[in-house]
Design a protein around this nucleic acid. Structure first.
Lengths: 123, 123
DNA sequence: AGATTGGTTCGAAATTATTCGAACCATCAG
DNA sequence: CTGATGGTTCGAATAATTTCGAACCAATCT
């Protein structure tokens, strides 16, 4: 048994590329994932997409792009996987970038502002 | 005569979308343009691409993507055009974002820090 | 006017990204 | 072991971007 190859490849901090990071963040769905992860690690199953009917292969691909850009970490966790933001690596490599992205209000302000969870932002 | 419509459309500050901005910045060539413009407005002819043999239609298209994302302004100037970074608009809409992108050192940082040490990956 | 310089726009071709089903693998519950 | 749950990977279809030449336009010479 010992088929322990379940760890997927993650770029080293020094290999992170600004353009790849920006590209990965430039998709609304991926950005939404990153926002969820900003609150702390999450099991993949608890990380929801905007449209719940999106197939898991697509979800997996979104995570792959984020992982390969070095934005998130994806590690085995029990029966599933745990996702986490690579905040520390990103901050070290691109200071202030993630913070500014996370604190930026998104484009479509056309929805009800029923959001209350502002993390350490400004009042 | 009187065809003075040479002004191209620019999105209003309030229409800027984070994902579009990130996308526009996610291309190395476009990012290099933005870096040049960070030093102040430039005439298009003085704004050089990494490869000087790139045709002008391509250059124009790169500028279009940046302009439509709201990152640069492109206005008639004498016989040519003047490009400028929309710093103020970007700062107002996405505080800190442009600064962090501009101050981030770019891609292949694989040099310099000679310590071939362990990648930031997880043990 | 005509020629020159500087730039946009329009297609079309090539490249790259996204989407999704099917097949596959690992872990946990019975 | 069997089945169920959770996720990755592969391949093919689709969609979006990029690239470039050609046509076109505006302003500046001579």
């Amino acid at each position: 048994m010992a088929t322990e190859i379940l760890e997927l490849p993650h770029p080293a901090r020094s290999d992170l590329r600004l353009t790849d990071v920006l590209f990965a963040l430039s998709d609304p769905e991926r950005l939404a994932i990153v926002r969820q992860l900003a609150g702390g690690p999450l099991e993949m199953a608890q990380c929801h997409l905007s449209d719940p009917s999106i197939p898991k292969s697509t979800k997996s691909h979104l995570m792959k792009v984020l992982r390969e850009a070095g934005i998130i970490r994806n590690e085995p966790f029990g029966r599933g996987r745990r996702l986490s933001l690579r905040q520390h690596d990103l901050d070290a490599r691109f200071p202030g970038l993630i913070d500014s992205v996370l604190s930026a209000c998104d484009g479509d302000a056309a929805k009800g502002a029923s959001r209350a969870g502002s993390p350490a932002g400004k009042p």
